[in-house]
Computed example of a mutant assay.
Amino acid sequence: MNELIKQVEQWSIDKDLNKGNSHVQHTKMTEEVGEVSAALCRNNIDELRDGIGDVVVTLIILAQQNDMDLYECLNAAYEEIKDRKGKTNADGTFIKESDL
């Protein structure tokens, strides 16, 4: 996974995306999330796989544009949630204890 992330980062550098506008990159990420939604609605597993991958690529580049990396961002999120308490409801949504 680390090697693949480095390859995406290098691809971004080769295309000068690493110096791009983060707002534009966020818009691209949002577009890709929409494609994930469409794939889910169509129950198209191949498009879903591609869409999830595209979202990850856009997030890698967004982090890179802001002098971060995917590991750093994911680690920060995990540190925030790792001890979180709550309940998962019938439809599979986790509800934080503070929101119960």
Score class of each variant (00 low, 15 high):
residue 79 E to R: 08
residue 76 A to G: 07
residue 26 H to D: 01
residue 33 V to F: 10
residue 65 Q to F: 01
residue 41 C to H: 06
residue 16 D to N: 15
residue 32 E to K: 14
residue 44 N to D: 15
residue 18 N to E: 06
residue 42 R to M: 11
residue 34 G to K: 10
residue 37 S to T: 11
residue 75 N to T: 06
residue 85 K to I: 06
residue 78 Y to N: 12
residue 42 R to K: 15
residue 2 N to Q: 07
residue 29 M to R: 05
residue 83 D to M: 03
residue 4 L to H: 03
residue 75 N to I: 02
residue 32 E to Q: 12
residue 73 C to R: 04
residue 100 L to I: 12
residue 51 G to H: 10
residue 29 M to C: 14
residue 13 I to T: 13
residue 59 L to D: 03
residue 78 Y to M: 05
residue 53 G to Q: 08
residue 58 T to C: 14
residue 54 D to V: 08
residue 94 F to A: 12
residue 77 A to L: 13
residue 69 D to V: 03
residue 70 L to A: 02
residue 8 V to G: 04
residue 59 L to P: 03
residue 40 L to G: 10
residue 94 F to V: 05
residue 27 T to H: 09
residue 42 R to V: 01
residue 13 I to W: 00
residue 96 K to E: 10
residue 54 D to G: 11
residue 79 E to C: 06
residue 39 A to T: 06
residue 75 N to G: 00
residue 6 K to Y: 01
residue 69 D to E: 03
residue 82 K to N: 10
residue 61 I to Y: 03
residue 79 E to P: 01
residue 85 K to G: 08
residue 57 V to Y: 10
residue 57 V to A: 11
residue 62 L to K: 08
residue 32 E to M: 05
residue 44 N to E: 12
residue 60 I to W: 01
residue 57 V to P: 05
residue 51 G to S: 11
residue 96 K to V: 05
residue 53 G to M: 06
residue 71 Y to Q: 10
residue 77 A to Y: 12
residue 80 E to R: 09
residue 73 C to K: 07
residue 19 K to H: 13
residue 90 A to V: 11
residue 90 A to H: 13
residue 43 N to V: 13
residue 72 E to W: 00
residue 19 K to Q: 13
residue 23 H to G: 10
residue 97 E to D: 15
residue 25 Q to G: 01
residue 91 D to Y: 06
residue 37 S to E: 04
residue 63 A to I: 04
residue 33 V to C: 08
residue 28 K to V: 11
residue 18 N to Y: 07
residue 16 D to I: 01
residue 95 I to T: 14
residue 40 L to D: 07
residue 67 D to T: 11
residue 56 V to F: 05
residue 95 I to Q: 10
residue 34 G to D: 09
residue 22 S to E: 11
residue 71 Y to N: 05
residue 71 Y to G: 01
residue 22 S to D: 07
residue 48 L to E: 12
residue 69 D to W: 00
residue 16 D to R: 12
residue 80 E to Q: 11
residue 82 K to E: 12
residue 17 L to T: 04
residue 78 Y to T: 01
residue 65 Q to S: 06
residue 20 G to V: 00
residue 46 D to A: 13
residue 90 A to R: 10
residue 30 T to S: 06
residue 2 N to E: 11
residue 21 N to F: 00
residue 4 L to N: 03
residue 99 D to R: 12
residue 14 D to Q: 10
residue 69 D to A: 03
residue 68 M to Q: 14
residue 88 T to H: 01
residue 28 K to W: 03
residue 1 M to A: 15
residue 50 D to A: 15
residue 93 T to S: 13
residue 8 V to M: 02
residue 41 C to S: 15
residue 10 Q to E: 15
residue 65 Q to E: 12
residue 28 K to Y: 08
residue 64 Q to D: 07
residue 95 I to F: 03
residue 10 Q to R: 14
residue 83 D to A: 07
residue 68 M to C: 02
residue 30 T to V: 15
residue 31 E to M: 03
residue 84 R to E: 15
residue 72 E to F: 00
residue 66 N to W: 00
residue 30 T to P: 00
residue 30 T to K: 00
residue 88 T to F: 06
residue 76 A to H: 09
residue 87 K to R: 13
residue 100 L to Q: 14
residue 43 N to E: 14
residue 81 I to C: 09
residue 46 D to E: 15
residue 74 L to W: 07
residue 88 T to V: 15
residue 37 S to V: 12
residue 92 G to D: 11
residue 11 W to L: 14
residue 58 T to H: 06
residue 87 K to P: 02
residue 51 G to F: 07
residue 44 N to L: 03
residue 19 K to V: 00
residue 34 G to R: 09
residue 58 T to W: 00
residue 100 L to M: 14
residue 100 L to F: 07
residue 98 S to K: 13
residue 19 K to D: 11
residue 68 M to T: 02
